[in-house]
Amino acid sequence: MHRFAKPSVFLKLTGAMMPWMVTLTVILTVVGLYLALFASPVDYQQGSTVRIMYIHVPAAWMGLFCYIGMAACGAMSLIWKHPLADICARATAPIGATFTALTLISGSLWGEPMWGTWWVWDARLTSMLILLFLYLGYIALVNAFDDPERGSKAGSALALVGAINVPIVKFSVDWWNTLHQPASVARMDGPSIDPSMLAPLLIMAFAFTGYYFIVLVLRVRLELNQRRIRALQLSGVFDDRAPTSGDDSNLAYDQGHNAGAGK
């Protein structure tokens, strides 16, 4: 497992997979949007607003999926201290936050015509808002330290503690009385949703998953580059202008230190 978690292997593997992932995601998106907007029937109660579901529900799944991934990476980063786990967790956070925000926004846009309100403080909506705050808190925390290792420790701890919110989001519609409808796809007795609506829902979910993996790979590469830049800047290779002794050392340090700041 560790052999595959080497950054160089990761870059090679994902580099080869990238064109396929992009093609697949584009096809899934086009088919999913076609089914969602044209080919699927309107709901007998909700009319056309049911089409918001094909954004709302996959985005909510992705919000939870990304969080589980982020917390799992956080755990691996704490236990094995593998840098790639921490990098994956950092790369996942903004994607998960985007999907969670999209869930809340599309949910509001669905709630206003159907429930008559943009927002209610009920269990499902509130726990989803907490999920968004957990993402934002994680992003703020890991970036709040000069030393990335300390940031990753604190962030991983937050991600793990916050993972308790995931089952709360999932089961909130069963545990509490809520305006939000209960689960209709991931149920013990199988989906209660019609296949004509289930198909676009699942295809959009796969399209979002493909998007997640593409952006994840790109963000991991970005993070690897940034770490390499940081390592080079801190390595002292660029400080060879510094005199070996004397009062000028501070000046030379400043020059070296700020060398990359202007770019």
Partner: peptide, 17 residues
């Protein structure tokens, strides 16, 4: 409502990318 949710989803995902 429908176009707003699709539009916001498209814009935010593209901006992130």
């Amino acid at each position: 409502y429908i176009w707003a949710s699709y539009g916001i989803a498209a814009i935010s995902l593209i901006v992130l990318l």
